[in-house]
Design a protein around this nucleic acid. Structure first.
Length: 286
DNA sequence: TCCTCCCTGTTC
DNA sequence: GAACAGGGAGGA
């Protein structure tokens, strides 16, 4: 379940492995994974990977085809998407959905080498993830992209607080809503609500702006800390070098229903909020 | 605003 | 062999 810190870690570990290299070919092993942009596949042979970046929970490859305008490949990893660079000739794995064959990084002005020197695999066990290829200039026209809220780590907490206050739903639903702020998922929603002492079911409208600012700051802190720990590895998350993160060792509430609250010792409570499994402390969170 | 569904591997 | 994990689309 890559959320913002995990996708950021994946992008950081993928970047040095593929940036500057050229694509020599693409294999689509599961058609539905390529959710849009199949018509651009013929342009990819010879395209240079100019940048690897993140927005919200999306991993983006900026591509420069040889003789046409820039493209972007936008990947949503959902729960089980992952990247890994294998040696040339490596056969697809059981859950490999997409393969980009790559050359070595090219020196400026040189022709792309004809021999592939690596294969970028997009693996996705549960097939919820997707890739969309589109012209770079079309990115703002993609509805999901256009509706994304601000990056929580690049936005003042006070501004995030105002956005969280809108609406009358459970505050956890607002934190998870990518149009309110982009990048939080179930883990970081629960962890930030605990850190801020706010019950996940509290209604945004009824929480003071001061407390919502505390929540926004808590979210920023927990995301930042998790990035430093290279994300949370529960079940199968790995970065693009196959390494696990360590932030799961810092969880105060996520996955700890029935265990003692780290603050007051009371048993943590499990519940279902906003359609998601939720853990909170009934005493510390109001 | 809230619920169901998509999907497969793991756990009970 | 059922319950569960969950981001986001789509419908009630």
């Amino acid at each position: 379940m890559p959320e913002l810190p995990e996708v950021e870690t994946i992008v950081r570990t993928l970047r040095p492995q593929v940036a500057g290299r050229k694509i020599t070919g693409v294999q689509v092993l599961l058609p539905k994974t390529l959710q849009a942009g199949a018509e651009f596949l013929p342009l990819l042979a010879g395209a240079r990977i100019a940048a690897v970046r993140r927005r919200a929970k999306l991993a983006l490859l900026d591509l420069e085809p040889a003789n046409s305008p820039p493209l972007v490949a936008a990947f949503h990893l959902k729960m089980t998407g992952s990247f890994f660079v294998h040696s040339p000739g490596t056969a697809p794995l059981k859950h490999t959905r997409l393969i980009f064959d790559l050359t070595e990084a090219d020196a400026a002005g040189t022709e792309p080498q004809s021999q592939p020197s690596g294969r970028l695999f997009f693996d996705d066990t549960r097939t919820f993830g997707y890739c969309r290829i589109m012209p770079h200039e079309s990115l703002p026209l993609w509805d999901f992209w256009a509706k994304l809220g601000p990056e929580p780590l690049e936005t003042p907490a006070a501004e995030l607080a105002v956005r969280l206050k809108a609406g009358n739903r459970a505050i956890k639903a607002a934190v998870l809503d990518q149009t309110v702020l982009a990048g939080a998922g179930n883990i970081y929603a629960d962890e930030s609500l605990f850190a801020a002492g706010i019950a996940p079911t509290a209604r945004g409208r009824e929480i003071s702006l001061a407390r919502l600012t505390v929540l926004a700051e808590a979210l920023q802190a927990v995301l930042q800390k998790s990035i430093e720990e290279c994300g949370s590895s529960i079940r199968d998350y790995r970065d693009a070098q196959g390494n696990a993160g360590a932030f799961q060792n810092c969880f105060a509430v996520y996955g700890r229903a029935g265990q003692a609250c780290v603050r007051c010792g009371m048993p943590l409570q499990g519940a279902r909020v906003a359609g998601r499994s939720t853990v909170f402390c009934p005493k510390c969170q109001k």
